Amino acid sequence: MEIKTVSKKRKLLPGLRSVKFNPAIEGGELTIDELKAMIKRAEEGPFYTLEEGQEMIRQWREQRRNR
């Protein structure tokens, strides 16, 4: 029996696109200056209301169910 797996590309948050290190899912070291730069980019947004965030999660769940 052969089990096939699909490789998925990791998606980073919009503010982290140019950064190779994703602190949410990877180990490693990060300098203070790198951390400050990441925080500064994150503070620029985008920002969502609670309702917008819940709607995005609902749509994401719906897409996963339809696969």
Rank of each mutant, 00 (worst) to 15 (best):
I57D: 04
Q54G: 01
K9E: 04
P23G: 06
P14I: 07
G53V: 02
P46C: 11
W60C: 07
G53M: 04
R10N: 13
T49R: 10
V6D: 12
R41G: 08
I3Y: 13
M1I: 01
R61T: 02
S18C: 14
Y48I: 00
K40S: 14
L35T: 05
L16T: 05
R64I: 01
G15M: 07
K36V: 07
P23I: 03
T49W: 01
G28V: 02
L30R: 04
F47E: 00
M1G: 11
F21H: 13
I57L: 13
R67G: 09
E52A: 03
G28I: 03
P46K: 01
F21M: 10
L30H: 04
A24T: 09
R61K: 10
L30I: 14
T31W: 01
L12G: 00
R10A: 14
R64A: 07
K4Y: 07
S18R: 15
R58W: 02
E52S: 07
S18Y: 15
E2W: 09
K9Q: 04
K9P: 00
I57S: 00
G15D: 13
F47W: 10
G45A: 02
L50R: 07
D33Y: 05
I32G: 06
A24Y: 09
A42V: 01
M1W: 04
K4S: 08
A37M: 12
E44H: 10
E51S: 04
G53P: 01
A24V: 05
S7I: 05
